[in-house]
Nucleic acid binder design. Structure first.
Lengths: 215, 215
DNA sequence: TGTACATCAGTGAACGCGCGTTCACTGATGTAC
DNA sequence: TGTACATCAGTGAACGCGCGTTCACTGATGTAC
């Protein structure tokens, strides 16, 4: 992971700090996160971090941006993995896949998810800064909905409130399923995705959904 | 607020500590919360708190329970304030009122809302402990949905997934609108409540909604 | 190719602070007789 | 009604700790000539 020979100059300390911070937060919670702890784990003196971040809070913001980037990447990967053919069915399948990826990310990295969406200094949403040049997750969702319009699955009017509805539902489910919440075991995910698809497509198109059974 | 004469015995220190903790968290954020800070503000020595709470975490749990109780009360008060007549319309108006109260609480007390729903030790949901003998907010929602069935507005089958849908949507909206999030200014609340009502009632009953315009 | 030197990216020690928690204590209260 | 005493609910001082941050520093790197 780190060549002993050039131990003095680390190479990419900034990234290492962010990644180690993510690891600490994910494994031991936000309370366990501190500049010193992260530096200790990376094997660097506490104030080496100040070469890369103004203060502790700046590091935490970088963690949030990193989380947003991870989420975005997973949503895009989920879309790429969709193999449904035909513009309409594919657009629907893509929307479903992003929702599933969103919730999967929240459940896989609950503490990171909380940090990502819990920082008031950097709320989620349009034009948010991400790590790795990833687009904002919101943009990914927009792309899915645009594709639905382009494929004539939904009308432009129907598109108007679609982000709000889809995002709200999926984010709400993810939040409530987090950390042993009641939805974690009580309610399976797929029916929720059905709700999202139905809600976005509208009542008239209910039977146009994916092969998944209605519950 | 506090009689100087019996300053030694406080009277109800436990409640005072919880309420002051809520105040600190709400005004200055969770980071500003500490046993010592809360005790200081109440005007009591730091370890007086240990007569009432096992440790700092126990106090924070009490704060979460208090928040849950506040939320529940506001939902119930919102229901009581509904003046619509007729069992069916009233049940629909009640559901809408609880959703509005839920979001209003989250926006009015964002930090408390986060603490209330962010503690993994005490996830929200059925049979959660509340302060003041309030029922769990989840029970209030259940009551609303039961009333819809009793008034024959929805079928028992349709009721099945209704909690999930209503709670998820409202909680998601509340979370995303928090702390200057993008939904705070971008999207008004009433259309979301329309979505909830439509979703719970089903496509067939779309026109049975409240007087509020469709957007 | 070799040397001088500015710049970059780290070290190591130290600071002051507020924290959670524990200790031995004491003042107020309520109950038994 | 009065007194003795157990119990309750607070005080005040102290502990050890890890934190964020700053200081003066030094080793490594890259560039100019």
């Amino acid at each position: 992971m780190k060549k002993p020979q050039d131990a003095y100059h680390h190479g990419d300390l900034r990234s290492s700090l962010v990644e180690e911070a993510v690891r600490v937060i994910e494994r031991e919670g936000l309370d366990a996160f501190s500049l010193r702890e992260v530096a200790r784990r990376v094997g660097v003196s506490p104030n080496a971090a100040y070469r890369h971040f103004e203060d502790k809070d700046a590091l935490l913001s970088a963690v949030a941006a990193h989380g947003l980037g991870m989420l975005s990447r997973r949503m895009r990967e989920a879309i790429e993995a969709v193999s449904v053919r035909g513009a309409g069915p594919r657009a629907i399948a893509n929307l479903r896949a992003t929702g599933r990826a969103y919730v999967a990310f929240a459940l896989a990295k609950p503490e990171l998810f909380r940090v990502t969406f819990g920082r008031q200094a950097s709320p989620p949403g349009p034009d948010q800064t991400c790590t790795n040049g990833e687009p904002d997750p919101y943009r990914v969702l927009e792309g899915c909905l645009d594709a639905l319009v382009e494929a004539s699955v939904i009308s432009p009017e129907r598109r108007a409130g679609a982000e709000l509805f889809a995002w709200t539902t999926v984010h709400g489910y993810a939040s409530l399923a987090l950390g042993g919440g009641p939805l974690a075991s009580l309610e399976p995910l797929e029916p929720v995705l059905d709700l999202v698809i139905d809600g976005v497509l509208g009542p008239s198109a209910t039977s146009a959904r994916k092969p998944a059974a209605k519950r």
